[in-house]
Design a protein around this nucleic acid. Structure first.
Length: 108
DNA sequence: CACTTGACCGTAG
DNA sequence: TCTACGGCCAAGT
């Protein structure tokens, strides 16, 4: 696994503001990762220090095995989940979407 | 080297 | 809205 990319992904996740969320796909794009799967893989290994709970699937749901804790942590930040799903239109990290649309060569 | 696995995603039906 | 499928890519067996 590419160490630099690995580091990049963690940096992006750390950057997600409180009370907001991002999808694995968003993080992948911003971190220039080849696939969203990689983001999940990285969080699975080194995600324990990060606000990993702010990362969810493209449809607003969380991975089954961690759903309970994730939803609770989010609730503590004011992110409400209806029927196990979060409304991305409301809580999605908009700045990330904007950056992604513009193609900033910025290297974070 | 071939095959399976997984914190995924977009498109059809 | 929800499920099924195919595609995806690195890591592990």
């Amino acid at each position: 696994m590419d160490e630099e990319l690995h580091e990049m992904i963690r940096a992006v996740v750390r950057k997600i503001p409180r009370g907001r969320v991002a999808t694995y796909g968003d993080v992948a794009d911003i971190a220039r990762a080849p696939s969203p799967r990689l983001v999940g893989a990285v969080l699975n290994q080194d995600g324990h220090d990060l606000p990993w709970h702010r990362v969810l699937r493209a449809n607003g749901t969380c991975a089954p095995h961690i759903a309970d804790q994730q939803l609770q942590l989010l609730r503590e930040e004011g992110v409400v989940a209806d029927g196990g799903k979060v409304d991305l239109r409301t809580y999605r990290w908009e700045d990330a979407v904007k950056e992604k649309a513009e193609e900033p060569p910025a290297l974070w």
